[in-house]
Design a protein around this nucleic acid. Structure first.
Lengths: 252, 252
DNA sequence: GAGTGGTCTAGACCACAAT
DNA sequence: TTGTGGTCTAGACCACTCG
């Protein structure tokens, strides 16, 4: 057994990483390793507590998180079981285009068509809760998968929030930039998905024929204090793209 | 103050309803009443514990649930705050067409076009993990909103799971039927959303012109033991329908 | 009856934010 | 320094499932 395996085999109570997170990771790893198989019962909360020499409530917190992401499910009076494999959840988690494509086994790339500072149209002004005359960055990008256009993306970001945003920073995820350089965090995002025929202006960028269908994904992300931080509208080629998500039945 | 108000004002420790659920409801009610306003801090966990004479962990469980549904958010070292209002979350919760329409302020109705028992096509057989020759119910319905077609819905359900399903039961939600008469529960569902041009056969049911766009929503629901229980494919008129959802940034 | 998850207690110490 | 949420303990009783 090598060192890499050891770190996930034993609990480090002195670590700055919370114990319940460590237990979460160990259970996930053991599922990945096939130690606990789909549909099978994992050890009881009391057994884990004994095994790791921690309180049952700590084990419970770890398991509750894994139930929350659909990795495990509980049955009262019976036990806790491993869920059957789940598909990627592009509508359940805030992922970047890059992560999304990689999860689908495609090679992502992108091309910046424009990077401007301007006063946005009324609609965007309202979405981003901007004052009259406030400026935004407008970033237009073609998003490719395996070198074929997948989506045309327009991102609006208030200049006030990121006065020094540079084009080359776009390589990183906006969420990373926010968390690293601005010391605040994204709290959530609201998405809308609709469909329509592709417009003539978008058609050539997406290399589509007339009367082709696009999925329009609109996303607004918020900071912890509920200020809108970005508004993105993407046109996905409907012949290449499909949204997935998983819905948990409200569990108590 | 009348009786109806009293029940949400005081905690009933003898009730069979868990205390943390009661606290959850009270906090929700107080937000609805405007006692705690958007962006404002609510009392601390220790204050609630003192106020309701319960342990802090119990209060914490209530608050954690409200954070989970986006009603509240926490900031370390500062406090817990009321989120700004959120939109309907048709992609986050397992809701029926009826609930979905009501939430959008529309009047739902529906019309059963067919209710048959048959051996399904291979694709459906695979989705529902059926053995060769196993039968399913196929229910075809037009779903109206304000008396105008909104969607064409095809539902496949294994006969084996519900040997006595009757057409008139379709008035109720399938989920209610399952939970009331069959003593088991839905655990989760997987959804796919894509878009395409409407087919000629569906076109007349949806009262659409040629070259109209539809959103195709496909949903597979699972029981707690991970057996698939229904497979639904709905064609929504893209000129009338839009999906919404809210994504929480993974919080620990 | 033995084992399970569901709920709850009454504390504790920590890191972080504000003053 | 005081107050907040974050984590953790070592118990307890309950309702449920299964043999």
């Amino acid at each position: 057994m090598n060192v890499t395996e050891v770190v996930i085999d034993v609990l480090n109570k002195a670590s700055h990483i919370p114990i319940y997170i460590q237990i979460e990771e160990m259970i996930k790893q053991q599922i990945a390793d096939g130690k606990y198989r789909q549909g099978e019962m994992i050890p009881s909360e009391r057994e884990f507590a004994e095994m790791y020499q921690v309180s049952r409530m700590t084990v419970r917190q770890a398991i509750t998180n894994l139930v929350g992401i659909g990795q495990l499910y509980r049955e009262k009076g019976k036990g806790t079981f491993v869920s059957t494999e789940k598909l990627e959840q592009s509508l359940n988690s805030l992922t970047s285009f890059t992560e999304d494509m990689l999860a689908r086994g495609l090679v992502p790339s992108s091309e910046v068509l424009s990077f401007d500072v301007l006063i946005p149209p009324k609609e965007i002004m309202k979405e981003l809760q901007l004052a009259e005359g406030e400026k935004v960055y407008l970033i237009t990008r073609i998003r490719n998968a395996d070198n074929i256009p997948m989506a045309l993306e327009r991102t609006y970001i208030p200049v006030e929030l990121f006065p020094n945003l540079k084009e080359q920073q776009l390589e990183q995820s906006l969420y990373q930039i926010i968390e690293q350089y601005y010391g605040t965090k994204i709290s959530h995002a609201d998405q809308h998905i609709e469909a329509r025929l592709v417009s003539n202006s978008d058609r050539k960028f997406l290399q589509l024929a007339e009367n082709s269908v696009v999925l329009v994904m609109q996303r607004k992300s918020y900071l912890l204090d509920q200020r809108p931080v970005e508004f993105v509208r993407s046109m996905y080629r409907a012949d290449r793209y499909k949204f997935h998500n998983r819905i948990e039945r409200r569990a108590l």
